[in-house]
């Protein structure tokens, strides 16, 4: 499934600029622990978290994730957004909590792979 369909289906707010919304999402991962994401997330996964620290961008770039969804109405701080734009990482936001976002992604057919 393409990112653009997820953005639309879950009414996500796209935060970063100049990003490719046509990327394929290979699966989903939800975690707030960076070491866990580094160890277990797979390439092309969409990552759901409430961490807004700029380190999330480095993790997403390292694991070549398809995007990050910030939950609970969290907004990226200026450093994080700047880094996302520099690295071309797709940063999205939602007011919904993680459980709800994951549930809806799961319903769209996105699995943990």
């Amino acid at each position: 499934m393409k990112i653009s369909e997820i953005v639309k289906g879950l009414s996500l707010e796209v935060k970063s600029a100049n990003v490719n919304l046509e990327k394929e999402v290979t699966g989903g991962y939800v975690s707030d622990l960076l070491s866990d994401v580094i160890a277990n997330c797979k390439e092309g996964n969409i990552w759901i978290t409430l961490q807004t620290h700029q380190n999330i961008i480095a993790v997403a770039a390292l694991r070549e994730l398809s995007g990050i969804i910030l939950v609970n109405g969290k907004l990226p701080n200026a450093d994080t957004l700047k880094k996302a734009n520099e690295e071309g990482i797709l940063l999205m936001a939602s007011s919904l909590p993680a459980f709800e976002i994951v549930g809806r992604l799961y319903n769209l057919g996105i699995r943990c792979r």
Binding site: D32, L33, L50, H53, N77
Partner: peptide, 17 residues
């Protein structure tokens, strides 16, 4: 909100966010 001086090991414990 979001400002923290916590080291990484504290963040990995679920605090210091």
């Amino acid at each position: 909100e979001g400002y923290s001086t916590a080291p990484d090991y504290i963040r990995e414990m679920g605090f210091g966010s």
